[in-house]
Design a protein around this nucleic acid. Sequence first.
DNA 1: TGAATATATGAGCAATTGTTCATATATTAA
DNA 2: TTAATATATGAACAATTGCTCATATATTCA
Lengths: 96, 96
Amino acid sequence: MKLTELKAIQLAELFSSLSDASRIRIIAQLMGGEMSVRSLADGLGMTESAVSHQLRGLRQMHLVRARKSGRQVFYSLDDDHVSRLFTLGLDHVQHG
Amino acid sequence: MKLTELKAIQLAELFSSLSDASRIRIIAQLMGGEMSVRSLADGLGMTESAVSHQLRGLRQMHLVRARKSGRQVFYSLDDDHVSRLFTLGLDHVQHG
DNA sequence: TGAATATATGAGCAATTGTTCATATATTAA
DNA sequence: TTAATATATGAACAATTGCTCATATATTCA
């Protein structure tokens, strides 16, 4: 298959976004619906700062989207590509 | 969604395997069928050493498989999860 | 306005990563 | 056996990454 260097880099960046256990766990939580930064941090046992740093990267790669309400920010998965990549990956890990 | 820490780590490792442009280009080449280390290296403009190092990681994650024939080793994609992850990722990068 | 709360961000540091270079192993041919 | 070829591997180094800590911004409430 032919692939421009740019597309290769973009693809690598996309998968990079999913290449850390903390980010995977953030995404797993968001599979259940939108959550605030604090409740993500509480649920994951991470600091809000660490979660916020990770969410920034996920946002930049359009894996999550933010909705502001008052002083909270609720995050959710951006589109269904994300959960499809997630479950396809889980498939690969579980079977063969 | 609930996810054990082990599964989170395994998923992250899987996506890590796809998180580098060189590895993405190796996989793109292998979408066309099996290739030797040398022809991969030639086609990608990488040294055989660099390609071999990367193939080792891909092999360990069961993304590629090796078939030895004489003094050459031919690599191919391990199963269809790989190309499905690849094309799903490409989808995400191209649209939305 | 000022205090409290929720999130974001920059600097800095330890840990990880991808490559090169040198060398090792394995196979074939002479 | 020796030389040549194909691949693999270990060490080392620069570059990147994910966290903590301190601080900044934004919003609500008194």
